Computed example of a mutant assay.
Amino acid sequence: MRLVVDGTLATTERAFHDALAGPLDFGPYYGNDLSALWDRLSTDVERPVELVWTDSAASREPLGDSAYSKIARVLTDVMERDAARPPAHRFVVRFE
């Protein structure tokens, strides 16, 4: 699955979580926080997933450097965790 998150629309943490929760079927009990994001992306989401965060720089200012960096870190940590897996079983993130 290829999922594109528009950075001009992902200007709050809630908006970012919403952009992923529906398309990746996080379910009604998704916690909308970084711990829940890690849990869902690292164990529950069917692979392969390519997440493309377009205009990611446009999200940084309204989110704030700290929140943006924490979200980006979760995404890259999941990608690094999957790096040794075959391509059909990986989560990949790109920041554009």
Score class of each variant (00 low, 15 high):
residue 37 L to F: 03
residue 86 P to M: 01
residue 3 L to W: 05
residue 24 L to I: 11
residue 7 G to L: 03
residue 51 L to S: 08
residue 74 V to E: 12
residue 5 V to K: 10
residue 20 L to K: 04
residue 6 D to L: 01
residue 91 F to K: 02
residue 14 R to M: 11
residue 47 R to A: 14
residue 66 S to A: 15
residue 67 A to G: 03
residue 94 R to C: 05
residue 14 R to D: 15
residue 40 R to A: 12
residue 70 K to L: 13
residue 21 A to S: 10
residue 33 D to S: 02
residue 68 Y to Q: 08
residue 14 R to E: 15
residue 10 A to D: 10
residue 86 P to A: 13
residue 48 P to H: 08
residue 41 L to R: 09
residue 95 F to V: 04
residue 29 Y to V: 03
residue 58 A to F: 01
residue 29 Y to L: 12
residue 58 A to S: 14
residue 1 M to I: 08
residue 41 L to I: 08
residue 84 A to E: 13
residue 13 E to F: 00
residue 2 R to Y: 01
residue 79 M to L: 01
residue 13 E to I: 00
residue 81 R to D: 11
residue 8 T to L: 08
residue 83 A to Y: 04
residue 29 Y to Q: 14
residue 33 D to M: 02
residue 3 L to I: 14
residue 45 V to F: 08
residue 62 P to M: 04
residue 26 F to K: 04
residue 20 L to S: 11
residue 87 P to G: 04
residue 67 A to V: 11
residue 19 A to I: 02
residue 5 V to N: 04
residue 10 A to W: 04
residue 42 S to G: 05
residue 78 V to Q: 03
residue 73 R to D: 15
residue 60 R to A: 14
residue 18 D to A: 15
residue 22 G to M: 07
residue 62 P to V: 07
residue 94 R to I: 02
residue 19 A to K: 08
residue 43 T to P: 00
residue 23 P to C: 06
residue 39 D to L: 05
residue 53 W to H: 09
residue 89 H to C: 00
residue 55 D to C: 11
residue 84 A to N: 08
residue 95 F to M: 07
residue 59 S to D: 06
residue 76 T to V: 14
residue 67 A to K: 12
residue 70 K to C: 05
residue 70 K to R: 15
residue 3 L to S: 04
residue 47 R to Y: 05
residue 67 A to E: 14
residue 31 G to E: 10
residue 53 W to F: 07
residue 25 D to R: 12
residue 37 L to W: 01
residue 32 N to G: 06
residue 80 E to I: 01
residue 47 R to F: 10
residue 65 D to E: 15
residue 58 A to W: 00
residue 6 D to R: 11
residue 74 V to L: 03
residue 37 L to D: 07
